[in-house]
Design a binder for these strands. Structure first.
Length: 707
DNA sequence: TCAATCCGTATC
DNA sequence: ATACGGATTGAC
């Protein structure tokens, strides 16, 4: 009996295992002031998307500052986390577990980046933990030791300012910005520490020192001359390389750091730390650098903002343009979103007054933009046998021939295949839209590679046989097959003896030398040519325009302009025989299609305005928000119904191929309902799924573009 | 009456 | 995930 009684108090005894597991806090001396730390625990569980409180042991008092990485016991396991704040009192009523350790005293999550991550997470219905994971690269201890500490107050960095920096004042306006009436004011405001927001339509460059990287470099230099830092985000690694040169020349070697995901862990963390510790005032990178901690940020730049490489493929799938926009506002920095073309989203920003257009005068555009000719649709005009073997319209062949004779490279853009082909009116070429939800229609069904009657890609509704064109009333439809595949060898045969370079897919060529060279490239893989190309031929325009994608016209123009902008008029007075600089092939004669007209007139803003107007009329994104749900069929159905229950509109579900029976996959599209917050609802779906331990992975992408 | 097991829920 | 509390079940 006595033995029994002795056992009763055991659970309360300080030496009992249970007691020790629950509350070692009692035995550890705590920090004197602010002994409570709020911690963002790294967990993928969406229903735990909030901070948790921990006790700060006295020996961690010094290191446990806001922004540092910590390790904590959470749900019986050790987790990484970020210390957010120190508090005098806990809100949590139970006993607090102590911080287990401070991983490093480096405050890697700055208040500005944390704020931006909060806003981005909320905008996409994602968790803060997921978003912060995108913002802070994994720690690398060796890199942390190697990078010098932050210079103390008053202790200047010993880099001399670069040649582009003019500390004397505001007189020197960089030639790269003189073409834009708003350019001088933009540079002045950057230098003066202000926060202008601009939608920049870049002109094709006219020679060395006058291309888009030079303009970005000038904007960055103006910002650093005013004592602030800058962050430049471009779509891919090749663009990073192109920007690094001019920016480095403008602000000096030691001030710039390159930050891309392909650097590898150590180099990436080194670059991150060089920015965080204030050694590099300027960061140039790809979307992975959108959250880079630049102290005293004065300018953020998003180049080629319409390129979908700017969309992060990891949850919550933010677009870097949205990240930068929020950072600019929060940190009082200038915002410069630009490209040769303009996305519909940025057009909406312009219309809302969020950004001011920075564009050249019409006369200037006319003088600088390459001359574009649309080749006739048929090839019947051919007289040159060489053109016939390459199946090139003769106007295209002549342009290439003339270009090669000027001893400079010429470019042929050949679209890659594999898109979902769309459906258009036989008579006026207006794309067919779903009668039910206005979604894009795939010619062979709702998903790539499917074979069947034409159907909506969002809701899988089939197009009625008597569907009448919304523009001209015609009931005849056109669903062309794949574009014509043409290879570098085939095209090269039309120009015997000419050097041929092929770029695309696995083999992307970064740069070509001067001299007569026929360059064949897929969109986005066009090599840079120092001398500029003498001519460009854009093949198979239809295969870009006929993609069953809302963005097809804007995206087609973006790709055409990207190639056309590499063409440079002959440096010295014109030679006797001059062909058109740019020939667009494989589209109907111009005038009938907005994207073609926009290219010929070099007026991307006109196309963006027109597209945005159409979308607003039809209630399509970005006038409304949509979420794309994909994963196992059952989970997709459930999520779609859950969203519909809280006031949103399930447009429909499309079966995706791959997987049998239980493994079947699907994609649902849900449109935001009036007055209901779609991001909030998406967050709730994520939270409910994680709370009930739903086993399957489900993708919920808001405002996404990738299908 | 007690212990083993199941299930739901909170995770500081 | 994991660990805990409360409920449930089954054997003595």
């Amino acid at each position: 009996m006595a033995e029994q009684l002795e056992l009763v108090p055991a659970p309360a005894s300080p030496t009992s295992p249970r007691r020790r597991a629950r509350g070692p806090a009692a035995s550890v001396p705590l920090a004197q002031t602010d002994p409570v730390a709020t911690v963002l625990v790294e967990t993928p569980l969406a229903h735990l998307d909030r901070s948790f409180e921990y006790a700060v042991p006295a020996d961690l008092d010094e290191a446990a500052r806001p922004g540092v990485r910590v390790r904590v016991r959470f749900a019986g396991r050790d987790h990484d986390g970020f210390l957010l704040t120190r508090e005098a009192h806990a809100e949590h009523e139970g006993r607090l577990a102590p911080l287990r350790s401070v991983v490093s005293p480096e405050p890697v999550l700055t208040p500005a980046v944390l704020d931006a991550a909060r806003e981005v997470a909320a905008h996409y219905g994602g968790t803060l933990s997921d978003t912060v994971r995108l913002a802070v690269p994994p720690r690398h201890a060796r890199a942390e030791r190697a990078v010098p500490p932050r210079p103390g107050p008053g202790e200047a960095e010993d880099h001399e300012p670069g040649p582009g920096v003019d500390p004397a004042g505001d007189t020197a306006i960089d030639p790269a910005w003189t073409a834009y009436p708003a350019g001088p004011a933009l540079l002045r405001r950057l230098r003066d520490g202000q926060a202008p927001a601009a939608a920049w339509l870049a002109l094709p460059g006219q020679g060395p020192g006058d291309d888009w990287p030079d303009a970005i470099a000038a904007a960055v230099a103006a910002t650093t001359a005013g004592g602030r830092g800058a962050l430049v985000v471009v779509p891919d690694r090749r663009d990073v390389e192109r920007v690094m040169g001019p920016v480095t020349r403008a602000v000096g070697e030691g001030h710039v750091v390159r930050l891309t995901a392909d650097l590898g862990p150590e180099a990436r963390y080194t670059a991150f730390l060089r920015a965080l510790r204030g050694h590099a005032r300027v960061v140039v990178g790809t979307r992975a650098s959108g959250f880079a901690p630049v102290p005293d940020l004065g300018l953020v730049v998003c180049w080629d903002e319409a390129d979908d490489l700017h969309e992060e493929p990891r949850a919550p799938y933010p677009h870097v343009r949205e990240v930068l926009r929020r950072r600019a506002r929060r940190e009082g920095a200038a915002l410069l979103v630009g490209g040769f073309t303009r996305s519909v989203v940025v057009q909406q920003w312009v219309d809302e007054g969020v950004v001011a257009p920075v564009v050249a005068d019409t006369d200037r555009v006319r003088g600088v933009a390459p001359a574009v000719v649309v080749a006739g649709e048929g090839h019947q005009e051919e007289r040159d046998p060489a053109a016939r073997t390459a199946r090139l319209p003769s106007v295209a062949w002549r342009a290439l021939r003339a270009g090669l004779e000027s001893d400079r490279p010429v470019l042929v853009q050949v679209p890659r295949q594999g898109y979902v082909l769309g459906l258009a009116c036989q008579d006026c070429r207006t794309p067919v839209r779903c009668e039910r939800c206005q979604g894009p229609v795939g010619a062979g069904g709702p998903v790539a590679g499917s074979q069947g009657p034409p159907a909506c890609r969002w809701c899988s509704t089939e197009v009625p046989v008597d569907h009448a064109c919304t523009e001209c009333g015609s009931r005849r439809r056109r669903a062309t097959g794949m574009g014509e595949r043409r290879t570098a060898e085939e095209l090269g045969r039309a120009f015997p003896g000419t050097r041929v370079v092929s770029s695309g897919g696995e083999h992307v060529v970064d740069e070509v030398e001067g001299g007569a060279t026929l360059v064949v490239a897929t969109p986005g893989a066009e090599p840079w040519a120092e001398t500029g190309y003498a001519a460009a031929v854009l093949l198979d325009g239809w295969s870009l325009l006929e993609r069953a994608d809302l963005d097809a016209p804007v995206e087609a123009l973006r790709r055409w302009c990207a190639a056309a902008a590499l063409v440079r008029a002959r440096p010295r007075a014109a030679p006797a025989r001059r062909g058109p600089a740019v020939v667009l092939c494989g589209v109907p004669p111009h005038g009938s299609l907005p994207a073609v007209e926009a290219l010929v007139r070099w007026d991307p803003a006109w196309l963006a305005r027109r597209e945005l107007g159409d979308r607003a009329t039809l209630g399509l994104p970005p006038a409304t928000r949509q979420v794309e749900v994909s994963g196992p069929v059952g989970a997709v159905d459930q999520a779609g119904r859950a969203l519909a229950r809280v006031g949103h509109r399930l447009l429909g579900t499309v079966p995706l191929d791959g997987g049998e029976g239980e493994g079947r996959r699907a994609r649902a599209t849900v449109r935001e309902g009036d007055g209901h917050d779609l991001a909030q609802a998406v967050h709730t779906v994520r939270a409910e799924r994680s709370a009930r331990k739903a086993p399957e992975a489900l993708r919920l992408v808001l405002d996404g573009h990738a299908q």
